[in-house]
Design a protein around this nucleic acid. Structure first.
Length: 895
RNA sequence: GGGCGAAUAGCUCAGCCGGUUCAGAGCGCCUGCCUUACACGCAGGAUGUCGGGGGUUCGAAUCCCUCUUCGCCCACCA
C-alpha cells in the first residue's frame, strides 16, 4: 500500500494486473465476443436489489457502452448482469471454422483476424476444432456435400421448444414461395439478409409477337434471362390499349412457346409499356400473379444460378449473366429488341458475401409474423417500450407495420437443424414436428428423415432474453432476471434481432424482455465509412489498448458519443483520437499520487464522527471544492441515467482536471506542506472529493480508478471500487456563496496572470498587485484566499485597495472589480492605453445594443419580467466596468 | 421513390423545449515556462458571415419554410 507510484501511469502493467485480479474474484468476464464487432450480443438486465455481476472489458463500442452501464447500475446497488449471447455460437463457430480452414489452406469462406481466434469463447474454439476434424475427415471441399454440425449448446432445447410451439399454434408453416437465394452460399435468406443496394442497371424493352402474327406486345425487364421461364404477359384489366388482347396468345421468342395475355390489377399501366412479362418461378410479384391465374412455373435456374435443363439446350449451363447477354443478342438478331435504357434500381445482395440475390422458388419454413408483430407494436404505443434515442421508435413501428413472414430455413451446414422429420415409408408421407429426436414414424413406424435445413441464426437469437436464463425450464435465473431493463444494441440489428426479441418475449413469456432499448451509433472513419475489416479502415482495439490503455480507448469512445450519433475516429491518427484519454488517465494518476504522498495515517472524515472535520476548519477553497464535487455528482448521475455517457464523462473530466487538479490541489499545497495551518482539513477534503470523482468516473475508466482507489487508506485488500456505492448528492454540500467567492479568487488570479503574460514578466519574478472594489464582501473572500492568490499569481504583495501608482497593467472583472499590477518602467503606456481603450470600446458597443434593446418598448412589454431585469443588471454591470476602465485610462494619462 | 439524421474554429464535436459578455470544449497551432503530482504537464494567446436564402419574434446557432452537400434506413413497380 505504501510502495511509491511511478510518475507516469503505465496502462499495460496496471490494466493486466487488475484484469487478473478481477477475474480471480469473479468480477470480470474476459470474453470479447465474436470478433469484438458491434454485432456482439450482450444483454443488460437489472431488476433490484441484490448485487451480482459479470464485468467486462469491452473493446468495441457496444461492449464498452454495456460495460459502462452495468458498472453504473451495479454501483447504485442494482443487480446488473451481462448475459453473453451464446446463441451466436452459430456465427462464432462459423467464423472460427473459417479461420481454421484458412490456416489449413482450405479456403472456402472469408477469413477473420488472427486475433479473433484468440478471443472467442473457449467452447466455441473447441467446437470449431472439432468441426474442423470432421471436415478434414470428410476430405476435400468438393466432397463435403451436405453434412450437419448441430451445435450442442444450451439453446438447442429452447430453439426446438420455440419452433414446435409456434408450429402447434399455426405460426410456423412450410410453404412453396419465392425466397431470396444466394447462389454462392447456396442458401435461402430472409428479407433482412438480402441487402438492397442502388445499382445502375439497364432496362430492356422486348417485343413478344402475337401468336397469330398480327402484331406484338412490348414488355420491359431488368433481367432478360428470366424470359426463358415466362409463362404469361400481364396487363391491367382497365388498360384500353390492351383490353382487346386479353386472353389472346403470344409467341415467346427464343424459347418458341405460346403464352397467354392475362389481366391483373397488380400491373401499373403507367409504368413502362403497361405490359409485364410474368416469370412465376423467378419473381415474387410474378409468383403471386401466376397463382391467381393458375400459370405454370418454369424454374430455369439451378441453385448456382446457371440456366437449367428447363431452358433450350443452347442456354443450359450458362451463367445467369452470360445467359442475359445471349438472350438480348437473340432478341436483337430477330429485330425484337425495341430499345435499352439505363435504369437505376435496388438489387438485393447477400449480406454475407455480397453476391446478387436470385429470387428462387422453393420449399422453405416461415414464421407468420403479423400475430407476433401486433402486440409488439402495442407495447411501444402504450409507452411500455422506450427507445433511446426516441426517433428509433419510428423505424421500429414502420418495420412492424409492414412486416412480412419470416423465412427461417437455411441450407447451411452449421446451426440448429429444423426439428421436423418426414416419413420415408411408401404411401405414408407423414410429417412429424417434435421437441425430441424422432427415430421412427409415429404413424406407420417406418423410417424417418430429418429436414435437411437448419434454422436462421436469428431464430435462436430472438430467444436470448429468456433462453439464456434456462427457458423453457422455469429456472430461478429466469424468474429473477426476466424481464430485463435495458438492451444496448447497434441500430443495424434493430430488425434482425431487437424487434424480434421483443416479439418472442411477448409471445413466449408474456412480457417485453426490456423496457429500454438503447441504440448507440456506429464507429466510422473520417469519411464516415463504417469501420470494417474488409475495408481495411478499422482500428484494432487491441493495438489501442496496448499503446494507450483500455481506459483511453473507453474514454475516447464514450466521450465522442452523444446519444444516437456515430463516433468518428481517424484510423490514421490514433494519437489524436486516443491520446486525450491516456493523458486524462495520467492526470488522474498523478493527482492521486500527489494526494497519497501527502497523507500518512488515517484521514479524518468530513462528517459523522467525533473526530470529523469541523465546519470552522474549512477554508473557502474547501467549501468550494465540496460544492463543486456535489454539483458534479448530480450532473454525472443525471447524465448516466439518461444514457448521456459523453456528458457524464465531460462533467467528471472538468471537475477532476479544471477544478481539482488546476485549482484545489494548488490551493492546498502550503497547508499540506505545513507552511500554514489547516493541513488536516485539506487532506480530508482532498481524499473525500477525489474519492467521489473516482467513483463517478469508474464506469468509464475502470482501471485507473480502481488502481488508485484501492490504495487509499482504510481499503482492505479485497475492496474494489467496482462494488463501491455510488456517491449521493448532499444538499448540505451546496454552497452558492463559496462558489461565487472562489470564482472571484480565480478571476483575480487569472487577471494578474494575463497582465504578466501581456508584458512579458519573467515567470520567476514576483510583482505586486492591487485589487479594489466598492463592495466589501468580495474583499473578505480575497482576504481569506490571500495566500492562494499570492502563490498562484506569483505576487510579492497583494493590496486590497487602490494604488497611488499609475503606471502598470490594469484589468477590470465583470463585476467591476479592478485589478492593478504596477510595473513601473517595464510597462509600455501606449500599449496599455490601447488595451484598455479596446476593452472599453467593446463594452461600449455592447452597451449600445443593450440600450437599444432596453429602450425597445416591445421588448420591455413582451419579454418576461425576469429577463428584462436581468438585462438591466447586465447593462449596469457593463457600464460600471466601462467607467472603471475609462478611469484607469485617465490615470495613465492616455490621449 | 418514401422516411430520417447531420452541416458550428484547421480536425472531432458540445450548445439547439429562443433571452446569463453565447459563440464553447478537446486536439492541432502560436508565445513563455523542465514552478519538487503530472512536459501524457503548467500559464497565456489567435482562430468561426453557427452550410446558403427566406420567414416567425421585442430577440434566432436555437423555431418554421426552402435550397445545397453528406450520410443512414426503408421500398416486389417489371
Amino acid at each position: 500500500m505504501t510502495e511509491p507510484l511511478a510518475p507516469q501511469y503505465n496502462p499495460s502493467a496496471i490494466e493486466s494486473a487488475l484484469y487478473a485480479w478481477w477475474q480471480e474474484r469473479g468480477l470480470f468476464s474476459p470474453d470479447a465476443g465474436p470478433g469484438g464487432s458491434a454485432a456482439t450480443p450482450y444483454v443488460v438486465m437489472m431488476p433490484p436489489p441484490n448485487v451480482t455481476a459479470v464485468l467486462h472489458m469491452g473493446h468495441g463500442l457496444n461492449n464498452t457502452v454495456q460495460d459502462v452501464l452495468v458498472r453504473f447500475e451495479r454501483m447504485r446497488g442494482r443487480r446488473a448482469l451481462w448475459v453473453p449471447g451464446t446463441d451466436h455460437a452459430g456465427i462464432a463457430t462459423q467464423n472460427v471454422v473459417e479461420r481454421l480452414l484458412a490456416k489449413e489452406g482450405l479456403t472456402r469462406f472469408d477469413v477473420g483476424r488472427e486475433a479473433f481466434v484468440e478471443r472467442v469463447w473457449g467452447y466455441v474454439r473447441e467446437t470449431g476444432a472439432a468441426i474442423l476434424e470432421q471436415l478434414k475427415a470428410i476430405g476435400s471441399s468438393a466432397d463435403w456435400g451436405r453434412t450437419y454440425f448441430t451445435l450442442d449448446d444450451d439453446l438447442s432445447r429452447a430453439v426446438r421448444e420455440a419452433f414446435v410451439t409456434l408450429y402447434e399454434e399455426g405460426l410456423v408453416y412450410r410453404g412453396h414461395y419465392i425466397i431470396n437465394w444466394c447462389p454462392r452460399c447456396l442458401t435461402a435468406l430472409s428479407n433482412e439478409e438480402a441487402e438492397k443496394e442502388e445499382t445502375d442497371g439497364k432496362i430492356w424493352h422486348l417485343r413478344y409477337p402475337l401468336a397469330d402474327g398480327t402484331g406484338h406486345v412490348t414488355v420491359a425487364t431488368t433481367r432478360p434471362e428470366t424470359m426463358l421461364g415466362d409463362t404469361a404477359v400481364a396487363v391491367h384489366p382497365d388498360d384500353e390499349r390492351y383490353r382487346p388482347l386479353i386472353g389472346r396468345a403470344l409467341r415467346l421468342p427464343v424459347v418458341d412457346r405460346a403464352v397467354p395475355i392475362v389481366a391483373d390489377h397488380a400491373v401499373d399501366p403507367a409504368f413502362g409499356s403497361g405490359a409485364v412479362k410474368i416469370t412465376p418461378a423467378h419473381d415474387p410479384a410474378d409468383f403471386e400473379i401466376g397463382r391467381r391465374h393458375n400459370l405454370p412455373s418454369i424454374d430455369v435456374m439451378t441453385p448456382e444460378a446457371r440456366i437449367s435443363l428447363a431452358a433450350p439446350e443452347r442456354f443450359q449451363g450458362l451463367d445467369r449473366f452470360d445467359a442475359r447477354a445471349r438472350v438480348v443478342a437473340e432478341f436483337e438478331a430477330a429485330g425484337l429488341l425495341e430499345r435499352v435504357e439505363p435504369h437505376r434500381h435496388a438489387v438485393g445482395h447477400c449480406y454475407r458475401c455480397g453476391t446478387v440475390i436470385e429470387p428462387r422458388l422453393s420449399d422453405q419454413w416461415f414464421v407468420r409474423m403479423e400475430p407476433l408483430a401486433r402486440p409488439a407494436l402495442e407495447k411501444y404505443r402504450d409507452g411500455t417500450l422506450r427507445f433511446i434515442p426516441e426517433r428509433r421508435g419510428d423505424d421500429y413501428t414502420q418495420w412492424l407495420e409492414g412486416i412480412r413472414d419470416w423465412c427461417i430455413s437455411r441450407q447451411l451446414w452449421w446451426g440448429h437443424r429444423i426439428p421436423v422429420w418426414y416419413c420415408e415409408a411408401e404411401g405414408c408421407a407423414r410429417t412429424t414436428v417434435s421437441r425430441s429426436d424422432v427415430g421412427a414414424c409415429p404413424g406407420c413406424g417406418g423410417p424417418v428423415k430429418q429436414d435437411e435445413d437448419v434454422l436462421d441464426t436469428w431464430f435462436s437469437s430472438w430467444l436470448v432474453p429468456f433462453s439464456s436464463l434456462g427457458w423453457p425450464e422455469r429456472t430461478p435465473d429466469l424468474a429473477g432476471f426476466y424481464p430485463g431493463h435495458t438492451l444496448v444494441s447497434a441500430p443495424e440489428i434493430l430488425f434482425f434481432w431487437v424487434a424480434r426479441m421483443i416479439m418472442s418475449g411477448l409471445h413466449f413469456m408474456g412480457e417485453v424482455p426490456y423496457t429500454h432499448i438503447y441504440l448507440h451509433g456506429t464507429v466510422r472513419d473520417t469519411q464516415h465509412r463504417k469501420m470494417s475489416k474488409s475495408l481495411g479502415n478499422g482500428i484494432d482495439p487491441l493495438e489501442v489498448v496496448e499503446r494507450y490503455g483500455a481506459d483511453a480507448l473507453r474514454y475516447s469512445l464514450v466521450s465522442g458519443m452523444s446519444v444516437g450519433t456515430d463516433v468518428i475516429l481517424d484510423p490514421d491518427d490514433l494519437e489524436g483520437s486516443f491520446a486525450p484519454g491516456r493523458n486524462f488517465a495520467n492526470k488522474l494518476w498523478n493527482a492521486g499520487r500527489f494526494i497519497l504522498s501527502n497523507i500518512e495515517g488515517p484521514v479524518r472524515p468530513l462528517a459523522g464522527a467525533p473526530d470529523a472535520v469541523r465546519p470552522d476548519e474549512l477554508a473557502l477553497a474547501d467549501r468550494w471544492i465540496i460544492a463543486r464535487c456535489d454539483a458534479t455528482v448530480r450532473e454525472a448521475t443525471d447524465a448516466y441515467e439518461k444514457f448521456r455517457l459523453n456528458e457524464a464523462a465531460g462533467a467528471v473530466y472538468r471537475f477532476l482536471w479544471s477544478d481539482l487538479a488546476d485549482w484545489y490541489i494548488e490551493q492546498i499545497k502550503p497547508r499540506l506542506y505545513g507552511d500554514v495551518p489547516g493541513g488536516d482539513a485539506a487532506r480530508a477534503v482532498a481524499v473525500q472529493t477525489f474519492d467521489v470523482a473516482l467513483r463517478l468516473l469508474h464506469p468509464i475508466m475502470p482501471f485507473v480508478t480502481e488502481a488508485l482507489w484501492r490504495r487509499f487508506p482504510g481499503r482492505t485488500a479485497n475492496a474494489s471500487i467496482s462494488v463501491a456505492h455510488w456517491p449521493r448528492p448532499d444538499a448540505r454540500a451546496e454552497d452558492a456563496s463559496a462558489i461565487a467567492e472562489f470564482d472571484l479568487v480565480q478571476q483575480v488570479v487569472g487577471a494578474i496572470r494575463g497582465i504578466r503574460a501581456e508584458y512579458g514578466v519573467p515567470p520567476g519574478q514576483t510583482v505586486r498587485a492591487y485589487v479594489s472594489q466598492d463592495g466589501r464582501a468580495v474583499h473578505a473572500a480575497l482576504e481569506r484566499e490571500r495566500g492562494t492568490i499570492l502563490r498562484l499569481a506569483k505576487l510579492s504583495e497583494l493590496v486590497l485597495g487602490e494604488s497611488t501608482e499609475r503606471i502598470g497593467g490594469h484589468a477590470v472583472l465583470p463585476d467591476g472589480t479592478a485589478v492593478f499590477v504596477p510595473l513601473g518602467d517595464a510597462i509600455d503606456v501606449d500599449r496599455e492605453c490601447g488595451r484598455l481603450g479596446a476593452e472599453a470600446e467593446r463594452l461600449s458597443s455592447l452597451l449600445g445594443s443593450q440600450e437599444k434593446k432596453l429602450s425597445n418598448e416591445q421588448f420591455v412589454a413582451r419579454a418576461p419580467a425576469d429577463v428584462v431585469a436581468r438585462e438591466r443588471d447586465k447593462m449596469a454591470a457593463w457600464s460600471e466596468q466601462r467607467d472603471v476602465l475609462l478611469g484607469k485610462r485617465k490615470l495613465l494619462g492616455c490621449g
